[in-house]
Amino acid sequence: MSQDTPYIFDATSADFDQLVIQKSFLTPVLVDFWAEWCAPCKAMMPVLKQITEGYQGELLLAKVDCDAEQDIVARFGIRSLPTVVLFKDGQPVDGFSGAQPESAIRAILEPHVQMPPPAAADPLEQAQTLFAEGQIADAEAVLVALLSEDNTNALALILYARCLAERGELGEAQSVLEAVKGDAHKAELAGARAQLTFLREAAELPDVADLKTRLAQNPQDDEAAYQLAIQQLSRQQYDAALDGLLKLFIRNRNYAEGLAHKTLLQVFDLLGNDHPLVTTYRRKLFAALY
Rank of each mutant, 00 (worst) to 15 (best):
M1N: 12
S13C: 08
F16Q: 01
Q18F: 05
L19V: 11
I21E: 12
K23T: 11
F25C: 06
T27A: 05
V31I: 13
V31H: 10
V31T: 11
W34Y: 00
A35S: 04
W37I: 09
C38S: 05
A39G: 13
C41R: 01
K42N: 04
A43P: 09
A43F: 10
M45D: 12
Y55A: 01
L60M: 15
K63W: 07
G77N: 12
L81F: 05
T83F: 06
V85S: 06
V85I: 09
V85P: 06
V85C: 05
D89F: 03
P101T: 02
H112E: 11
Q114R: 13
P118D: 15
L124W: 01
L124H: 02
E125P: 12
E125Y: 10
Q126E: 14
A127Y: 02
Q128I: 01
Q128D: 04
Q128Y: 03
L130G: 02
G134R: 07
Q135I: 09
A141P: 09
L143M: 00
V144D: 09
S148R: 06
N151A: 07
N153D: 08
A154F: 06
A154V: 05
L155V: 06
A156E: 05
A156C: 04
A156T: 02
A161S: 03
E166P: 07
A173N: 03
Q174P: 13
Q174K: 11
E178R: 08
A179H: 15
G182F: 02
D183P: 10
H185S: 05
H185W: 06
K186I: 13
A187E: 11
E188A: 08
E188H: 05
L189P: 06
A192D: 05
A194E: 04
Q195K: 13
L196F: 08
L196R: 10
T197W: 13
T197M: 14
L199G: 15
E201N: 15
A203K: 08
A203L: 10
L205H: 10
P206K: 11
V208Y: 09
D210L: 14
T213G: 14
A216T: 12
A216I: 12
N218K: 12
D221Y: 03
D221R: 04
D222A: 10
E223P: 14
L228W: 02
L228E: 04
I230M: 11
Q231L: 13
Q231N: 14
Y238K: 08
A240V: 11
L245F: 00
K247V: 11
L248C: 00
F249V: 11
I250P: 09
R251F: 04
H261K: 15
T263E: 05
T263K: 03
Q266R: 06
V267C: 02
V267Q: 00
F268M: 03
D269V: 02
L270C: 07
L271K: 02
L271R: 03
G272L: 00
G272K: 03
N273E: 10
D274H: 08
D274F: 08
P276R: 12
P276G: 08
L277G: 00
V278K: 01
V278W: 04
T279H: 14
R282Y: 01
R283D: 11
L285G: 00
A288I: 04
L289D: 10
L289Y: 12
